[in-house]
Every structure is written in structure tokens, then in C-alpha cells.
Design a protein around this nucleic acid. Structure first.
Length: 467
RNA sequence: GGCCCGUUCGUCUAUCGGUUAGGACACCAGGUUUUCAACCUGGGAAGAGGGGUUCGACUCCCCUACGGGCUGCCA
């Protein structure tokens, strides 16, 4: 198949936020399409009106946007295509691959109850399957597919391999409800077909559904897409990811300040591998990603590894891009935007900041020395560093900083000499220096800070602190 | 209950019949150090259990156990 024919899609139902699992499914579809010059489409499965909420749709779109997963064209609303779905159901009726079933829901419920009591199969066999139209009553009906009852079906799945199901496991599923609305199973197939979806990459909770959906492709004579059912993501305890695991929505991680690039890398590697490669760029991921690299067993979500990868991505990120990401983070969390001076300061400090942070708040925390202005407010721990002797040390040092050329070598040499003359370890000077310069006990190297804020500001801060 | 899928270090995984079963994260010990982060060295750590097939199984087959999914006029 030519690469340009690749069309993937992500089809969430707007019944909640974008979860980590959904985000990864979207990511896999995105990677597959983007790596092959194909299209990545979005379809909102909003046919369940009671549970669908436009606010959720927006949240899902926002989540994808944050993750950098751009989709082609406008998102499709499944609900809006209801008429088309119903048309297909009626076409199947006309073709004899589907039939009208007049059984009431009470009848079916009673049957199931009995079957359960008898420990028999609960698959409902409609008595209307072969009843001629002239014997149909004038009462509400559903349209059911006429599923084969003999033989077996083998479906090839790019992840699961060949999966075989005995056809007697298939029921005559409902296509069109008695109120004329289509059922999900029909809508998915019609939409995937109409949208030209070539590869269906989705959670393996749909694996058995694929056999039902296959019946519709067969009935309509449509070519079936390549299937890839990927294992779900579990929580750290090996149970299905749920609220009790804490953060499960993509937005939660955005709010905690995890960089999107790190998130993409982590989620890509979760359940997929390319040899021993762990840390990679988007370009590499697009290049390497393939269905054959997807594992078959569910993976657990591990925040530690996420953090590690995020740290690596921050370290190699472009400074200006990082600044943008910080600004976006601030905006997303409702924090006040940075001033121009703060932005510029952060940019100047970025090289020393980015190699020591795993998440954005850490960048901000360690960048406090450029975000604040004189007089520096020392926090409790920093204040404790500024003892009387520490301050006298600083007041001795400060004048020496006056007429030197402002570069790392000079400053470092100067402090080394300064410490040697007083027989103290550099650490004894660095503590107070850090407290005076940053007002914090955690920051970049004191030399980095001095170079970033400049000679005058350094002297001013030290003077403030030794006063 | 029936059917389908899965099971390698704590975690993510490599291996596609022959390896001392490798890497990464995490962890532990030591080193470096100016806080944090990082870095360096070393360490412990795995094929769910049982049968086969084979000269040889983590790898192929069967059974069991465990986990998950489907079994709706939900998606």
C-alpha cells in the first residue's frame, strides 16, 4: 500500500477527560500516520447523548493539542452522521443481510435471565430472523444483522496476530434501535469506511468487537481496514488505571508541569519498543514507529520513568521553545504571566536551569533568582544561611568583585583565593552566596547565577545581604 | 457460565530454538560535588507453574493458575 494511503483516526467518546490510555492510543495513531505521510483524523463518538458533554470534547481536544498531536481536518461528530448510519442499516435490510426483529426488550431480558439460570449461552437468538415480511406485526422493531452461525472467522491483527472465533459466538447484534437511532457498532464501521480509515489502532477491549464489526464490512462489501488492538495501560499496581491511582488525565500531567515532549516519549515507549532505544525525538519516533513493535501485554504506568525522560527532554530542548512552554504552563494553570524582564531573565538563565529540572515547576523554582527582584526575600532555609559570620564573609568578598572582568574563570579564581586565604572550604562560602543571590537554598551554580544577573546586580544583592 | 487476549528483573522492555538472558528507570553501596540536578564505579534483581516437541527451549504445542476483555436497543 502506498504510504499516502495511510489514514488513522482517534475516536474518543466525550464522556470524560482525555485519559492517559486514550492519549497513548491517539499518539500511536498519530505516529503511524505522521511517519508515513498519512492522515490522522479525529472523530467524536457522541451518539450516547445522555453521557456526551461538549465540555469533554473540548477537554479532549485541548489534551491532544497540549500533547502536540495535531489532527487533519475538522473533527467529525458521529451523532451528526446518524442518517447515514441508518441508511446503511436499511441497505443491509434490503440486501437481506439484516432483518427486522420485533422482540421487546422485556422478552429479551427474560430470555437472558433464564439462560443465566440455566448456565446456558446468553446470546439472544431472535425468532424473527427468518420470518417473511408479510407476517411482520405493526409494532416497533430493531434492525439486527444476520450473523453466520456455522464455521469460524479468523481475523488478522497487526498486534495480536491471527485471532480465530467460532461463528456461533456471534449474535445478531442490533444495528438500528427501535427509535431509529444507530448503535455504536454500526456507526464505527460506517464512519471508518466513509472516512477512508486504513488502519484502526485502538484498545484491545475492542478485539472481540472487531468480529462483530467485520460482519458489517462483509455485508456491505467494504474492504476492512488493518487492525491493531493495543493492550491497555494499567496503574502501578497492575490494576486498570482509575481515579484511585491519582492523576489519570492527560491534563493532570500538563497541570503538574510535565513537558509534552517527555510525555510523548514516555507514552510511545510504553508498550512499544524499537530495540533498546529509550530516549528519542519526535522525528525518530515517527521514523521508527511501527505496528510490529507494539507489545501484547498491558504495561504499567511508571511516573519515575516519565520524570526521567522529561528531564532528558528539558535538557536538550531549545531555550526559546522552553520559554514558550513555561509561559503556556503558567497560562494553563492560571498563574499570572511573566513580565518581559522575567522572560528575558529566564532565557538568559535557561542553560543552567534546564539541565537540572525534570518538570516545569522545577525550572521555575530554580530560576527564582531571575524571576525576583531586589531586595531579595530569602526563604526560611536561605535566611538561616545568612548568619552573622556569613554576612561578614560576604561583605569582605563584595569589594573584591568590584573591579574584575566578569567571566567565570576570573570569578572562580577570585573565590578560590578568597577561601584559601581564610582556610575555609568553598562550600562554606557558596551557601551564603546562594542565599544572598537567590534567596533560596536550591538554585543553579553560584557562578552561573552571577554571570546571568551581571556584575552590578551581583554586588547589589551581596551588599543587601551583608547589611 | 461461554468465548477471546495476555504472563521475561520492582517497572518498561530486548531476545524472534543455541546468549554468562541484554538495556533503561527505580533501588542499594561507594566516589565526585557548591545546594538541587547531574555524573562516575560497583551491586542485587527475571523467563507464573506443570507437562510435552527437540540434540537443545524464554522462544513452538497442551494443561493449570493468575490478570484483562467481550458476552447490551452503552461506547
Amino acid at each position: 500500500m502506498p504510504a499516502t494511503d495511510v489514514v488513522t483516526r482517534f475516536a474518543p467518546s466525550p464522556t470524560g477527560a482525555l485519559h492517559i490510555g486514550g492519549a497513548r492510543t491517539a499518539l500511536f495513531n498519530w505516529l503511524y500516520a505522521r511517519g508515513r505521510g498519512g492522515k490522522f483524523l479525529l472523530r467524536i463518538e457522541d451518539t450516547d447523548r445522555a453521557r456526551s458533554d461538549p465540555a469533554n470534547t473540548q477537554a479532549i481536544l485541548d489534551g491532544l493539542t497540549w500533547l502536540g498531536l495535531d489532527w487533519d481536518g475538522e473533527p467529525t461528530s458521529q451523532f451528526a452522521r446518524m442518517d447515514r448510519h441508518a441508511d446503511v442499516a436499511r441497505a443491509m435490510l434490503a440486501a437481506g443481510t439484516a432483518y427486522k426483529c420485533f422482540a421487546t426488550q422485556d422478552e429479551i431480558a427474560a430470555f437472558r435471565e433464564q439462560a443465566r439460570a440455566d448456565k446456558a449461552s446468553t446470546l439472544y437468538r431472535s425468532p424473527w430472523r427468518d420470518v417473511p415480511a408479510d407476517q411482520h406485526p405493526d409494532s416497533p422493531y430493531v434492525i439486527r444483522i444476520k450473523a453466520p452461525r456455522d464455521g469460524q472467522t479468523t481475523l488478522h491483527d497487526a498486534v495480536q496476530g491471527d485471532v480465530t472465533l467460532s461463528n456461533d459466538q456471534l449474535d445478531d447484534m442490533v444495528l438500528l434501535r427501535s427509535d431509529g437511532t444507530p448503535v455504536y457498532m454500526l456507526a464505527v464501521v460506517v464512519d471508518d469506511h466513509d472516512m477512508g480509515v486504513s488502519h484502526v489502532i485502538r484498545g484491545d477491549d475492542h478485539l472481540t468487537n472487531a468480529f462483530r464489526q467485520n460482519l458489517i464490512y462483509l455485508a456491505m462489501g467494504w474492504p476492512a481496514p488493518v487492525l491493531a488492538h493495543i493492550p491497555l495501560i494499567f496503574g502501578p499496581d497492575g490494576k486498570k488505571l482509575s481515579k484511585r491511582h491519582g492523576a489519570t488525565a492527560a491534563a493532570d500531567y500538563q497541570a503538574m508541569g510535565y513537558p509534552a515532549a517527555g510525555m510523548r516519549n514516555y507514552l510511545t515507549r510504553l508498550g512499544w519498543s524499537h530495540g533498546d532505544d529509550e530516549f528519542f525525538s519526535d522525528a525518530q519516533a515517527c521514523d521508527w514507529f511501527d505496528l510490529s513493535g507494539i507489545g501484547k501485554s498491558p504495561a504499567r504506568f511508571d511516573v519515575k520513568k516519565l520524570e526521567n525522560l522529561c528531564g532528558q527532554h528539558i535538557a536538550v530542548a531549545d531555550n526559546a521553545a522552553l520559554l514558550h512552554e513555561i509561559a503556556a504552563f503558567l497560562a494553563a494553570t492560571g498563574a499570572p504571566p511573566m513580565t518581559l524582564g522575567q522572560s528575558e531573565g529566564l532565557l538568559r538563565a535557561m542553560n543552567s536551569l534546564k539541565e537540572r529540572a525534570k518538570i516545569i515547576p522545577e525550572l521555575l523554582e530554580k530560576g527564582h533568582f531571575v524571576l525576583t527582584t531586589r531586595p531579595i526575600q530569602a526563604d526560611e532555609k536561605a535566611a538561616a544561611q545568612l548568619t552573622a559570620e556569613a554576612r561578614s564573609l560576604l561583605s569582605e568578598l563584595t569589594p573584591q568583585l568590584q573591579n574584575v572582568s566578569w567571566n567565570r574563570d576570573t570569578i572562580e579564581a577570585l573565590t578560590t583565593t578568597f577561601c584559601a586565604a581564610r582556610a575555609i572550604k568553598f562550600g562554606q562560602l557558596a551557601g551564603p552566596l546562594r542565599a544572598a543571590l537567590a534567596g533560596r537554598t536550591v538554585s543553579p551554580s553560584v557562578f552561573d547565577m552571577m554571570l546571568v544577573i551581571g556584575q552590578d546586580e551581583t554586588i547589589a544583592r551581596l551588599t543587601d545581604a551583608s547589611a
